[in-house]
Amino acid sequence: MSISKKDVEHVALLARLALTEEEKVLYTEELNAVLGFMDTLNQLDTSEIEPTTHVLDIKNVFRDDEVAPSMDPSQVVINAPAKKGNQFRVPKIM
């Protein structure tokens, strides 16, 4: 499978990355090099193999639904690049 500059633009959109024209060309080359290497996996027939979901035999982890203290809202927003009171401030959405 080879990937085109158009594919790179689509993936960058999904990943929310603004790329320059030079980066689009560079990533097209680099991703093709790496993905070409991945194609070695197609030598293996895995139709009967279960995919790994977890390396250990851990089942669902449950806990009691108990009220416990959590982080203070003023601490939650303390690292925000922009805030108003205890809220995150962002550019306009609509």
């Binding site: 690292n79 690049p81 922009a82 995150f88 550019p91 959405i93």
Partner: peptide
């Protein structure tokens, strides 16, 4: 760029702020 870390301050809408 919302909860922590670097944010581009020039963007005027949320989508370009993210990207």
């Amino acid at each position: 760029g919302v909860r922590y870390g670097y944010r581009d301050e020039t963007a005027e809408d949320i989508f370009s702020m993210y990207t």
